[in-house]
């Protein structure tokens, strides 16, 4: 049999390039910590990205500077997006310097988010470290919006110091809720801090959950996630029900550029949220 060659494609591809950013306009900028800001943005024209699911991320583009992968911390059906950005490099510095009315490019949403439906019927433990809270925030809201579907809900948020806590006002409203237990801890604090002090895992003994029936969502720096996931596993939470959100260098976000590989996974496409059971052998090795 003869295979048919594919028909020649048109010289100009009519589809917008998959890596092309879509212009959004900055509505507001909130300073969270000395090096972190929260941007609220809206589509500036008719084109917009699909509504992200909790745990997904976007590529944010600063004109003439470049792109950075930033998790989505809020997304409204009207197309408004909230991203919290920490100044660490050229692109994030440019993003953090944006002011209301400025244009920012967006493409996305990318990746697999938190498997909230899989957690139904059992207890949920959410552990966030530092800037791990923004990608977990939409997951917490999704759980609270269908609260009766879950058992006990525990949220533990750890940061380096009190000034490194983000969404401080929102944390206070969460703490007042009776249908979720919210613990905050910092690694070290001055006398002006009346909350808990100790690494994030020290709060776990106080959390109430039934380990075999618990799903855990963990996000933060890699060491913090590894320690937290191990502590959860030690408590008896099944390793395949512990989910962590990995972070790696991303250029394309669609599994074509190779940068974000972690073992067999493309973090951009297969993650960022991945099962601890699949990650554990690689987390145990340096520089994978």
């Amino acid at each position: 049999m003869l295979a048919d060659p594919s028909p020649p494609a048109a010289a100009i591809d009519p589809e917008p390039p998959p890596l092309a950013p879509i212009p959004y306009v900055v509505r507001s900028v909130t300073t969270e910590t000395p090096d972190t800001v929260t941007l609220t943005i809206r589509p500036s024209a008719t084109r917009r990205i699909a509504t992200p699911r909790p745990g997904q991320f976007n590529m944010l583009y600063a004109f003439g500077v470049g792109e950075s992968a930033i998790s989505v911390s809020r997304a409204t059906p009207e197309g408004e997006l909230v991203h919290t950005v920490r100044r660490v490099g050229k692109v994030t510095n440019a993003l953090a310097a944006l002011t209301p009315g400025d244009t920012v490019g967006v493409r996305g949403p990318y990746g697999r988010g938190w498997p909230i439906a899989e957690a139904r019927g059992g207890d949920v433990v959410v552990i966030a470290g530092g800037l791990g809270l923004p990608p977990l925030r939409p997951a917490v809201y999704a759980i609270l919006s269908q609260r009766e579907s879950f058992g006990r809900v525990e949220v533990i948020y750890g940061a380096r110091s009190p000034k490194d806590l983000v969404y401080y006002d929102e944390i206070q409203t969460w703490r007042r809720r009776t249908d979720v237990r919210f613990q905050t801890t910092v690694d070290a604090a001055g006398r002006d801090w009346y909350g808990d002090v100790g690494v994030v895992t020290t709060r776990l003994p106080d959390a109430r959950f039934d380990p075999p029936k618990t799903t855990a969502f963990v996000c933060g720096p890699e060491i913090m996630m590894t320690l937290s996931a191990k502590a959860l596993a030690d408590r008896g939470v099944p390793r395949d029900r512990i989910w962590v959100s990995m972070e790696r260098n991303m250029k394309c976000a669609i599994g074509l550029c190779g940068h974000c590989q972690f073992g067999p996974s493309f973090v951009c496409r297969d993650g960022p949220v991945l099962r601890f059971s699949a990650l554990e052998p690689f987390l145990a090795v340096k520089e994978v």
Binding site: D13, P17, A20, P21, P23, D102, G105
Partner: peptide
């Protein structure tokens, strides 16, 4: 205040 993106034509040579 915004920007626009122009796609690239690919070389039609077979």
């Amino acid at each position: 205040p915004s920007f626009s993106v122009a796609p690239e034509a690919t070389d039609p040579t077979r």
